[in-house]
């Protein structure tokens, strides 16, 4: 009995020892010498592996940053949209380099058609997939550029930042968005755009990408940009360009004066996270008529809800906005 135990221990020990020796030599032979900073950089990254930086994952991004830091002594063009400037500052610190600040971006859905503003003209019945429908026909609402409402962008998002609103049939982006660009890729109609988050998250954009002429565009959708150029004329900052019957607001140049929002006859231009407007006593009627939007943008509605709940905060913001507005008006004058 004892013998068996001894033999077993010896033989197992021998096998184990032999394996250890082999493993040691193999490990030595195939050892990969890696810059230890790659690991450090990777640790600093958010590990979302979203691909928003343009690389296959956080590891690949870490390798690229270390390499570029080594070769060119800068981090230009490299940016982790998820981590933002803070993470990039950490990365720069690890690599002993200057971090370049990038304005944070956010995904913006540039369509406000959906079920309400662009009602069904035909009914689609089949596989629930935007790309397929895009290839099949113009869409239920008839707009050849509008949102198809089947949520491929929602499936693409890794951050739970975009959801379909069942009421409007349109996707909505919340503040979890890190601008990784996955939804932008996924959308077959290129409706989603990455735009600067803006001061206090305030943004103004044209919520339409329809390039048809005014007539058919308006026929398909209540809130389509009809290419009337009114906003283009009213903008004093060259932030608005007209192309293919469509207005586009450059987020960098826009000073958030909101002149175009009130000017737009189809309410295609949206303002987000702005406090409610002051109503001037003089031309009250005119102003009211223009500010009360026929169908509010979902995100805007949220903002309104916010004002009810956070009155205090809003008041402060309102004052700030007033100041801003005054400044802008000064500039205009």
């Amino acid at each position: 009995m004892d013998e068996i135990i001894i033999y077993a221990v010896i033989s197992l020990g021998a096998v184990g020892g032999a394996a250890a020796i082999i493993l040691y030599f193999v490990a030595q032979k195939f050892k990969v010498i890696e810059d230890p900073r790659i690991d450090l950089v990777e640790e600093a990254l958010p590990a979302a592996n979203c691909g928003g930086c343009g690389f296959a994952g956080c590891r690949a991004f870490a390798e690229a940053t270390v390499k570029q830091g080594e070769d060119e002594n800068n981090l230009e063009g490299l940016n982790c949209p998820v981590g933002g400037n803070d993470v990039m500052a950490d990365v720069a610190k690890i690599l002993d380099l200057e971090a370049n600040e990038v304005d944070p971006l956010i995904a913006v859905v540039r369509c406000n058609g959906g079920k309400i503003n662009s009602p069904q003209k035909v009914v689609y019945d089949g596989a629930s997939n935007c790309t397929f429908v895009h290839n099949l026909f113009g869409g239920e609402g008839g707009c050849p550029n509008g949102c198809l409402g089947l949520g491929e962008c929602v499936d693409a998002c890794d951050f739970e930042a975009i959801f379909m609103n069942p009421e409007t049939g349109l996707p909505e982006v919340n503040d979890k968005c890190v601008a990784c660009g996955a939804c932008v890729e996924a959308c077959p109609r290129d409706i989603i755009e990455l735009r600067p988050v803006g001061k206090k998250s305030r943004r103004i954009f044209v919520s339409c990408i329809n390039i048809e002429k005014g007539g058919p565009a308006k026929k398909n959708c209540e809130v389509a940009c009809i290419g009337c150029s009114k906003c283009f004329k009213v903008c004093k900052f060259d932030a608005i360009t007209m192309k293919n019957n469509l207005a586009y607001i450059d987020g960098e140049k826009c000073v958030l004066c909101r002149k175009c929002v009130t000017e737009c006859p189809t309410h295609a231009i949206h303002e987000l996270n702005f406090p409610p407007r002051r109503v001037k006593t003089g031309d009250k009627d005119k102003n009211e008529a223009k500010t009360v939007l026929k169908v509010k943008h979902p995100a805007q509605e949220n903002a309104v809800v916010g004002t009810v709940k956070l009155t205090e905060k809003v008041k402060v913001e309102e004052q700030a906005a007033k100041k801003d507005d005054n400044k802008i008006e000064d500039k205009l004058n």
Binding site: Q120, K121, V122, V123, Y124, D125, G126, A127, F132, L136, F137, E140
Partner: peptide, 8 residues
């Protein structure tokens, strides 16, 4: 009339 149906 009902809306026309579209499918592949």
């Amino acid at each position: 009339m009902e809306l026309l149906k579209i499918s592949g």
